[in-house]
Simulated scan of single mutants.
Amino acid sequence: MTLILTRSDIAALLADLRDDIEAAVEGCHRDLALGRAVLPPPPAMPLPGSDGTFLAMASASAPDGLAAVKLLADLPANRARGLPVQRSAVLAVSAETGACEALLDGAEVTRARTAAATAVATRALARRDARVLGLVGTGPLARAHARALLPGRPYERIVLWGRDPGRTGETAAWITEELGVEVSVLSGPRAVAEAADVLCTLTPSREPLIRGAWLSPGQHINAVGAPPRPDHREIDTEGVVRCRIVVDAYSTARAKSGEVLIPLAEGALREDDFRCELGEVLAGTKPGRTSDTELTLFDSVGVGLQDLAVARLLIDAAHARRSGTRIELGA
């Protein structure tokens, strides 16, 4: 039988799995570094006559016993329709038998694994005495990041900016009410960048919102929001070049990340400057932060192996709790 998990099914399950998601995402990156998982670069399929593109994000994991593919639709024209710009679904099959184990809506999976990867990277790369968390962007990804980054970490306050003042105020109030942390809404990206010890950029921006001149020694930056397109980025070239760069996966960043591809094309960056993967830092085969004054950057493009890791959690939890829908898809 094949398990079908809708967005509401997944949201209900994730509410009880928050402590497990970060561990699962950390484990999948370590598995990749140690050769226990496979993650090819995703092919992009631009739609002729449209600015839309589709990505097939495939992966396979021996420890998780799954092979999976997330089909991601990135459709900017949806914004005018009042629909999500990005939509996705995850298909997971047994690595042993090839049987289709599950089909999952991708929205909640993507949000949860993205925030978890940021939390893993921040724990590995940020200074231990970081006290101020900065969020540029106030959509659902900002809330997911606040929830993922705060537990067990000594942040004293959050500084926040978003384009929409109404939504910014709502997000600030939600963080204070739900997570009990003081939030200051600041005047713009520069103010957030200059105030934060850990800075997360969470917007679908095409042009840089953060300038390198605004960054301070010892900061850690998570560049998260830009879609996987080589002409989109949130951090300018000076900012990227000033940092020690860690990517989620080199092959994916080399194909899809404007954060590194634009400086590379400009001759300001070399490929060796962004070959360090998060899993290698976690496995101890490459160093992370090397001093308290070093600037570190986690370039988060998002990879299918993270989706697979969260899918494994959800499939197991759904079977244990008898949630979701089961259909006879094939023999």
Rank of each mutant, 00 (worst) to 15 (best):
A102D: 11
L133Y: 12
G65T: 06
V120E: 00
S61I: 03
D74P: 00
D74K: 04
E101T: 05
D74N: 13
T114A: 07
A68T: 14
P76G: 09
L66C: 09
A107M: 14
A124Q: 11
S88I: 13
A56N: 06
V93N: 07
S50G: 10
R79Q: 14
Q86A: 12
A56Q: 09
R87F: 10
E101L: 15
A126C: 13
T122F: 04
L55V: 15
A56T: 14
C100Y: 02
D129Q: 11
L104E: 01
L72S: 13
L83I: 13
R87D: 05
L75V: 09
S50F: 08
A73K: 12
L91F: 08
A73W: 06
L72C: 13
A89N: 12
R113T: 06
R87C: 15
A62Y: 15
A92Y: 00
V69Q: 11
A102K: 02
L133N: 01
P76Y: 04
R123D: 12
A58P: 00
E101Q: 07
L55F: 07
N78L: 11
A107E: 09
L72P: 01
L103A: 13
V120L: 12
L83A: 02
R127M: 09
A126Y: 08
S50A: 12
A117V: 09
R131F: 10
E96Q: 08
L133F: 04
V85I: 14
V109F: 01
M57I: 07
E101D: 15
L71M: 10
F54S: 09
T118L: 12
L71G: 07
A95F: 11
A73Q: 12
A107Q: 13
A95G: 04
N78F: 15
M57T: 05
L91D: 03
